[in-house]
Design a binder for these strands. Sequence first.
DNA 1: GCCAGAGTACTCGGATAATCCATGTCCGAGTGCGTACGG
DNA 2: CCGTACGCACTCGGACATGGATTATCCGAGTACTCTGGC
Lengths: 136, 136
Amino acid sequence: MNDGRFAIATHILTLLSRSGGHWVSSEFIAGSVNINPVLVRRETASLRRAGIVACKEGKNGGYLLARESDLILLSDVYRALYNGPPLAFAKNRPNPACEVGRQIEGHLAALYGEAEQALLDVLGRTTLKAFVDRFD
Amino acid sequence: MNDGRFAIATHILTLLSRSGGHWVSSEFIAGSVNINPVLVRRETASLRRAGIVACKEGKNGGYLLARESDLILLSDVYRALYNGPPLAFAKNRPNPACEVGRQIEGHLAALYGEAEQALLDVLGRTTLKAFVDRFD
DNA sequence: GCCAGAGTACTCGGATAATCCATGTCCGAGTGCGTACGG
DNA sequence: CCGTACGCACTCGGACATGGATTATCCGAGTACTCTGGC
C-alpha cells in the first residue's frame, strides 16, 4: 500500500468523482497526479477489471466511474489493486532445512491476514463519496 | 510492509530469540532466510538503531536481542523499519495548480494515519515471545 | 437545404526501450582467540 | 612453567558494480466529430 499505487488510484477516482459524469482522459488525470499517462492507464486497468471504472476509446473518450461514488468503498479500491497472492515472501523461500525457515511462512501468513483485515476494516468505513466530500 | 522487509526482520528476530543468548552471525541467519548476508545486515542496522538488537564485531561476533523477547512488540519491529516520513506520495508531487492535487496529500495522509494505526494495534497485541512460541 | 460518406483528430491498450532502485560483490575496520617467545 | 605480545581468523559496516523491475516512449486499434460532395 505504501508503494504509491493506492494513492494514485485514489487520486484518479477523486478526479472522476468530481467530473460531473464527463469522460476524463488519462492525459488530464496524469497532469493532476503529475505522472506519466501510461501509469494512469495501468491503474485504471486494475480498477476496470474490478468494475469500479468504465472506459471508452476514441475521440472524447476516457474514464468514468462505473457506479455512484457512495457505492464505492475504499476497501474495494484496495482489493482491486492488491488482489494477488499474499506476498509474505516474494522471491527467496526460506531454507526448509531450518526449523524456523520451515514454519515461518505459515505463521507470517496468519499475522499478515490479521493485519490486512484490520486495514480493510478501516478502508471499508469510508466511501469514495465521503472521501471526496472532504475536499473544498 | 508487503515488501518483504518485515518478514525478514521477523525471521531474524525469531532466530535470535531461539539462540539461547548466543551471538548469531549474519551468515548463519542468511542461510535460514535464504538471502544474502548483506541484506541481513541492512535489516539489523535498522533494528539496532531502534535498540531491538545488539551487535558485536570481530571473531565470534554477531547479533543478539537487546532485551527479552517478551518485551519486544511486533509493532516495535514495524516502527523500526518504517520510521521514515509517511510515503503517501513517494516521488512525484501532485500538481499544485489542480484543486484536487493541492489537497489530496493531506487527505491521504489522514487516511494513511488511521490505517497505519490499525496495523500497529494488531501488531502491538503480539510480543516476539508469543510469536516465537507458536513454533514447534 | 439535407443527407451520406470518407477523412481526421483524439483516446485507450499493448509492445518495446530506458531509467532507477534493490540486490550482490568487494574491501576496510574491529575484535577475540591461538600461538610463540621471553622471563 | 607462566605471562605477554604478536599474528591470524572471523565478523560487521560501508563503497562500488550488477540485474531486474518500474517507468517512459512508441505504435496500432477504435470511435466520434467534421468537412465535402451529391441529391
